[in-house]
Simulated scan of single mutants.
Amino acid sequence: MAMLSPLPVRDGVGATRLHVPMTGDWPTIGAYMIDRFFHLDPEGLLSRFDRGEIVARDGTPLARDTPLGVEEFIWYYRDPPVETRLPVEIEVLHQDDDLVVIDKPHFLPTIPGGKFLQNSALIRLRNLLGNDELAPIHRLDRATAGVLMFSARPQTRAPYQLLFETRQVQKVYEAVSARPVDWDASRFPLVYRNHIVKLRNELKVQVDDEREPNAETAIEVIDADERVVHTLLRPHSGKMHQLRVHLAALNLGILNDPFYPELRGERPDDFDHPMQLLARELHFVDPLSDAPRVFSTTRTLQDAPVSGA
């Protein structure tokens, strides 16, 4: 069972739980934290104890001289990163007692991480709706836009998460790629398979051609012109960066993809040129009502061919 935080959610963000060793070379919990977070100012960290900002499991504030071994877990609020609001907005597509579905813009991560805290879909949505129990049921890459589902309350979260775990959700994506010189539309539709591996501390996933495929995508062409190819993608698995890797392997690397086929390195966000990948639709049978559900994006890919042009 999950350990409940003694501190309430603040500005849409929950408190951080830290496991503290019960024995060791540190006389106090404060001394352990100074050693653990060596990059922080020691006195600044200890002053947080003095202000009652570091608490035990029952919510009791701890002192800077609380001995090691008194508490195994402590809670505190992280100092938020300095953020400039990203110039993109979420759109709520659906809301009921159990589900919230949004249209996520490009550049906004699904959950907090690194330099993104308030600039995440989860925290923005919690603050917008005043619901601190919201939690993502699945995720989209920061660079990907489109349909994203959240659980509205923990009591009914598990059945929706199980849909994704058991692949009972049909996902449909669109992508736009630069048209290759040797473009041959007769190859499509096709199903592409390979084995994708995510290694720790690596930004890109790796492909292992010696192993049985664990990633599969059905790909068909929506349209093409002299510049670009617009594809419809139906992933049959959910590996990290799967669609981006599969299109790159077909010489159809997605426009403005910073990772595939070549890692471009960290650059400032170019809001005028988002990666051209869109989570277009989610189809599933609701596990609570047994009713069919379809949620669709209202967004389009700016570099897609204009029909009839």
Score class of each variant (00 low, 15 high):
F150N: 06
V147S: 03
K198D: 03
N201L: 07
K171F: 06
V176P: 03
Q168C: 06
F164D: 09
S186P: 00
N119V: 05
K115L: 07
P154L: 13
A175D: 07
P189L: 00
Q206E: 10
D184I: 00
Q155F: 03
L203D: 12
L162K: 15
N119T: 09
W183P: 00
G146S: 12
H195M: 02
R142P: 03
F150L: 05
V191K: 10
Q168Y: 01
R124P: 01
A178M: 05
I196P: 02
A175P: 02
I137C: 04
E202S: 13
E174G: 00
R142G: 01
H195V: 06
W183V: 01
Q161I: 13
Y160C: 12
T156M: 05
A145L: 03
G130D: 08
R142V: 10
L163H: 09
V197S: 01
R139Q: 10
P154H: 14
R187D: 03
D182S: 13
A145T: 08
I137M: 12
D208W: 04
S120G: 11
P159Q: 11
A185Y: 03
A185R: 12
R157L: 13
Q118M: 06
N127Y: 09
P154C: 02
S177E: 05
V169M: 05
S120P: 06
E174T: 01
S151K: 05
R167W: 09
G113E: 10
A152Y: 08
R187V: 00
V207S: 05
P180F: 07
D141V: 11
N127P: 02
